[in-house]
């Protein structure tokens, strides 16, 4: 059993309006791994992510991230915790009224004492890392879908977080843009040594980037293991998911 787990989810249960969404969910995310949480629509993936981000309180169970119990955090500690996590939202979540450069600089301006010159250098560096060197002064509405995702990724990593969460990063992208985004995530992991948790159901993407997978079905973890173990799994839903997804 590996010991360098940076996320520990134990016996997590959640329900809304009396309906169980997650029940007894337990799994680990290990340092510098790309862990994909997958499952069909309505399986509870997004609710699980919101619990991991501390946006929802667990009904039962616990979530430890980087050694801290997310449920018991004071507001100040929660803020410190958010500074150590990057979150990449499905639709980018960039503020339309700001340029790409201003969007990426925002966390630095708000949470550090860095002067404008240093901030601008860091922003350029991040834009360079996501292959968007010319997007600094452009507004989100002027970017294509793929560029928007890369700009959002640059903002998610601007504070050099050790942990990056990606919520459906490939949604709405064509296969070529998706492959390029996957490559980018792999590069960032190699360059920055970050651990990545990705919520997705894009089989092609999972096959390219996942080290480990956690399969959720009807609010329960039905499989947890490496990608290869998942591909050889006899669990009915996991087998069907990969077989039909390859078609």
């Amino acid at each position: 059993m590996r010991e360098n787990n940076i996320i520990q989810v134990r016996n997590l249960s959640a329900s809304f309006n009396g309906r169980d969404i997650l029940s007894d969910v337990s799994f680990d995310v290990f340092e510098k791994d790309i862990t994909v949480i997958l499952g069909g629509s309505g399986a509870g993936k997004s609710v699980l992510l919101k619990h991991m981000l501390g946006l929802y309180e667990p009904r039962e169970g616990s979530i430890h991230i980087l050694g801290h119990d997310m449920a018991g955090l004071e507001e100040k500690d929660q803020k410190q915790m958010y500074l150590r996590m990057g979150v990449f939202y499905q639709n980018g979540g960039l503020l339309n009224s700001l340029t790409v450069g201003e969007n990426i600089a925002l966390p630095l301006e708000q949470h550090t004492d860095l002067n404008d010159e240093l901030i601008s250098r860091i922003v350029w560096t991040k834009l360079q890392l996501v292959n968007l060197p010319n997007a600094y002064g452009l507004y989100p509405s002027q970017l294509s879908g793929g560029m928007l995702k890369r700009a959002a990724l640059a903002r998610a990593i601007v504070m050099d977080p050790p942990l990056l969460f990606c919520d459906e990063p490939g949604a709405g992208l064509d296969p070529i843009s998706l492959a390029s985004l996957d490559k980018l995530i792999l590069n960032l992991r190699a360059q920055m040594g970050i651990s990545v948790v990705i919520i997705t159901h894009e089989v092609s993407s999972i096959l390219r980037i996942a080290d480990r997978i956690v399969f959720i079905d009807e609010g329960k973890v039905i499989f947890e293991g490496t990608l290869n173990e998942g591909l050889e799994s006899n669990v009915e839903h996991v087998y069907q998911f990969f077989e039909k997804g390859k078609l």
Binding site: L114, L118, R121, I122, T125, K126, V158, D160
Partner: peptide, 11 residues
């Protein structure tokens, strides 16, 4: 060192 550190050294 991280991105901020490299930017500071370059500056």
């Amino acid at each position: 060192i991280d991105t901020g550190g490299v930017a500071a050294l370059d500056l």
